[in-house]
Structures are given as structure tokens and as C-alpha cells.
Design a protein around this nucleic acid. Sequence first.
DNA 1: GTCTATACGAAGATAGAC
DNA 2: GTCTATCTTCGTATAGAC
Lengths: 194, 194
Amino acid sequence: MNSRQSNVRQRVVAAAAEMLARHGLNATSIREMIKRAKAPLGSAYHHFPQGKEQVVLEAVAFAGAQVSHSLERHLQAGPVAGLRSFLSMWREVLIRSDFRMGCPVMAVAVEEPVGEAAKRPLEAAAKVFADWEGKLAAALQVHGRDARSAAELATLIVASVEGAIVLCRARRSISPFDKVARQLEGLVHAQASH
Amino acid sequence: MNSRQSNVRQRVVAAAAEMLARHGLNATSIREMIKRAKAPLGSAYHHFPQGKEQVVLEAVAFAGAQVSHSLERHLQAGPVAGLRSFLSMWREVLIRSDFRMGCPVMAVAVEEPVGEAAKRPLEAAAKVFADWEGKLAAALQVHGRDARSAAELATLIVASVEGAIVLCRARRSISPFDKVARQLEGLVHAQASH
DNA sequence: GTCTATACGAAGATAGAC
DNA sequence: GTCTATCTTCGTATAGAC
């Protein structure tokens, strides 16, 4: 519980989030994440008694919260600004990693673990997506959209950005992302006031 | 090369595609796919000398071609019919698997293998996505859209459907998919003639 | 309380018996 | 040509020395 322990915890969670985004859930190993955090293997189970499932859960929540906070801040300037912040964050991840990193939340959702159920990380992923959609939808509604239309557009935004990330990684190109971004801006502009 | 070999090959590739869609790339093991094809482990390397990389590449191409053929057939009745076919295929996968299966092409794109490069499966995935987008874009263009708008909308369709699949798996619900589908139909209807 | 050393299973791949 | 048995590596997790 002292500050050194907290730092190790933070470093492990951050490393896990990066590994999830790059290599996927099953290739995100305790060994590697603890190594990146410069801590011995045994200490992983001291800080995270429930092992990998716990680290992954925290990594998803951590990455989700980062995006969520930025989204929330920029949405105060309206839905267009919020959308642009959401887009630029993911665009940056793709560019900086040379299209080798994606979304750590997605990673948890598309790999059903072989062993036991391990439902908790998946539920955390669902919560993160719902949070992003909810924040976008609320802003769209405040700016003149009815509840149903706002919710639908918010879901389209999250889905198409996540999907665009996949297309970009496959193609090793930002082009799909920019095509999607352009259209989303058009859709948000169309009915929401500035 | 006789028919029994071909059957084994086909069964292995089909099993691999299903495992990719459900468990992801790294959890798709040679052992399990050959077991599902009711063939001994050693024979995997007889039929697929390049091992897992080769099976995965063929599984991605196989799954991609299945979707592509259906898309092509329905697009002859126009872009709306093509979109509906694309949507209903993926909706069916989600419902029938109780939201435990996704897109095998995506699986390859979001998990950078830990070991060597293994670029071939990723390139196959890029080809599949480009094929789907190209077919959709061509149909949209024939039905009155300019080339740029057609290409952008085609990319949005593929990206948002792939992303919607992820959201549905996380939430264990078809609701995100239906929200996205509804909007895509609106967008295709808007400018493309029936 | 921290961490080294290890148990145990499963992965990809192959050698070599039939 | 087919397949059993095995090599090597890496995964999660823990026992027990300091």
C-alpha cells in the first residue's frame, strides 16, 4: 500500500493495457507485463492476488477511464469537439504505433478465453463501451437530438471507430480511419448544433 | 491430393475459421483444430507444411470468400439488398453463437503475434476487407454515387459492422448491432437509388 | 513481506516408427 | 505417406527460502 507498491501496480496495469492493445488478450502474459514493470514475477501475485484476470480487468478499466475523461472534458465544448477528441486519440495511437496498436478494450471482447469463464474482464469492457456511448449520447441530446437518435448515433460512432481501427491495422494505413472520421463529423454536424 | 485429403484440409480450415472467430488468433491451436477435423496431429504438417500461419491464412481467405460471394450475389439487386445480406450474415453469427463468435478476419488483424513477423495472414485480412469494401463501393457507385462518396460509405459500412460485432460480444446483446444497422440502411437509402 | 526457484500444463513443431 | 511420441519453449501459478 505504500507508494512503491502503488507505482508497481500502476506500471503493471499500464503495461498490460499496452500489451492488450498490441498483442491481444491471450498473448498478454503476466511474465511479460511484470518484466516491463521491472518487478519480479512472484510479486505479481502479491499485488494482484487474482492473477491475470485481475490485471486485465484493471487495464481495461484504466484505458477506458483515460478515454472517458478526455471525452468528458471535450464534450463540454459540444458534441463535435467531443467527437474530434475521441477521433484524434485513436488516430494518434495508430500513427504512433505504426498501426500495430489498437484498442485494449476491444482485445478483451474478441477473445473468449479457452479455460474458465472469466466473465469479469468482458463485463468491464461492456461497461467501458457503454460509458463512451452514454457520454456521447448525452451530449448529442443536449444539443438538439431526441434520445433515440442520440443513442443510435453514439453507438455508430463507437462501433465505426473501433472497426476503423481494425481496418487500419490490417491495411497498415490511416486511410480507413480518415474516411470514417470524415463521415462521422458530417453526421454529427448534420443535426447537432455547433 | 485425393478427396480424403481435401476433406481433411477443408475441415481443418473451417475449424480454424470458427476458432478464430470465437477464441482469437493466439488461442487457435493446431492441436485443437486438427482434433476437430478428426485427424491426427502429425498430419497437420503434412497438409499444411507451413504450419499454423498457413492454416490461418487459408481460414481468413475462406471466411472472407464466403461473405464476399454472398455479398456479390445480393448486390446484383442493388446496394440496399447487398447491405442487408451483409448485415444479416453477421447478425446470424452473433445470435446463433449467443454472442460468443465474431469475425475471423478481425481476429487476425488485432493480435500481433509475439514471435516472428508472420505478415501473410495480416495481408490476407487486409485483402478481405478491401474486397468487401470494393464490392460495396462499386454497387453504390453504379447506383448514383460519385466514386469518393461510394468508397467512403463502403468503408464506413465495413468498419461499423465490424465494430458493432465487438460491442455486441462485450454486451452480450444484439442491440448495438441493430442500432448500427438501422443507421447504415438510412445512409445507403439516402443517396443511392433503390 | 519479497522474490527465487519450480511445478505443471499446453503450445508449435518435428523425428522417426510403421 | 500416416501418425505416435517427443523436443523445446512458454504460459499460469505457487512453495518456500530469505
